[in-house]
Amino acid sequence: MDYFHIFSLPTKLTVDLPALEKSFYALSRKLHPDRFASRPAAEQAAALAESSNLNDAYRTLKDPIARTEYLLKLEGIELEEQSKAATEVARTTGVAKKQIVPPDLLEEAFELNMQLEEMRMAKKMGEDDPQLRHDLQAAKSAFDAKMSATQAELESLWSKWDAALDTNNAAAKTAARDAMVSLLNRRSYLRNLVRDVNEALET
């Protein structure tokens, strides 16, 4: 049974969080160890396993990113497998592989990483370059804004997915799915960049 079914939810991405929480507590109570204290060991173990699965399900569906990733997995999206397959096609056909991440974001990620490295080196030498710090602050604001934008973009893709599911429109489902895959790929870069910039600014 997939995580959505555990909570009797449709495989949609817009989730009523308070209802999900309520449902989680109700199901948790049913599986509480106290209720199984006098039951045979096998039954206790089964309830424990179910309870742990329920926790995983709740944690996954509660989190917008984890929920989206989980749904994409249910849809058979295996990012790594796809990347490997694309490389193999490039190898046999000689046609350049299209990078999943847009080139301008890669350039940006690369440049920022160079700046971060420079800043770490300067720190090691006991220097603190105000210009570099200023650039990093600016980069941080830019990336924070981009992260917020991805969130809004993701929510609009959820609506597209959910609507396609309602109308049973296969083409629209595929389009929404692929858009979510590329959005999440972009997001994982942004997330790392934000993390690294914060680290460099704090230390």
Binding site: E80, L106, A109, N113, L184, S188, Y189
Partner: peptide, 13 residues
């Protein structure tokens, strides 16, 4: 060549 692995956010030039 500038490429990236979105799985982990690596960049390679």
């Amino acid at each position: 060549g500038l490429v990236g692995a979105p799985e982990c956010g690596d960049v390679m030039r």
